[in-house]
Design a protein around this nucleic acid. Structure first.
Length: 149
DNA sequence: GCCAACGTTGGC
DNA sequence: GCCAACGTTGGC
């Protein structure tokens, strides 16, 4: 399983919107590197949900629920979208500053490429953020696997 | 609101 | 194919 980070401006599409709707198409991505990441995603992968601009914090964990298919709003056929569903809300949002000042997390891709809206997250980084968010990653993952079976 | 970073566009 | 101009993102 791979781990990702998805950015969204909360006044455009917030974590609460995803929780309310139960799933959404992650479309409109128009950056080649971000698109390549979308293509790599497999249903079951987990993605940190980050609020950019306002909040500037990781607020939840989404699950990739459908693989990349052509973005229907794109006629060129170059761009793709995926589908995501809410998985867990963090008990405590993890601020960008908390990430930046952490020796491990300060090296995340998000700081190398601040403008990229889809980035990869290493397993140890993901686990650390989930812990900072107040969740027991191992037990949450056990629940996930039980649900899957 | 400013501006740094950086991707895209278009003239040459 | 270079690179200046421009647009966008997103932290501050």
């Amino acid at each position: 399983m791979k781990y990702w980070l998805l950015k969204s401006e909360p006044f455009k599409y917030a974590w609460a919107d995803l929780v309310n709707e139960g799933k959404t198409n992650w479309d409109g991505v128009r950056n080649y590197q971000a698109r390549n990441y979308l293509k790599e995603m497999i249903p079951g992968d987990l993605a940190l949900f980050y609020h950019s601009n306002e909040g500037k914090e990781v607020v939840g964990i989404a699950r990739i629920s459908a693989p990349a298919i052509p973005d229907p709003q794109d006629e060129s056929g170059k761009w793709v979208m995926i589908e995501v569903a809410p998985w867990r809300s963090l008990k405590n949002p993890v601020s960008l500053n908390a990430l930046r000042t952490d020796p491990l997390l300060g090296k995340m891709d998000i700081f190398r490429q601040m403008r990229l809206s889809v980035t990869q997250v290493k397993p140890d980084e993901f686990e650390a953020i989930v812990a900072l968010g107040g969740l027991d990653f191992e037990s949450e993952l056990r629940h996930k696997n039980e649900q899957t079976h």
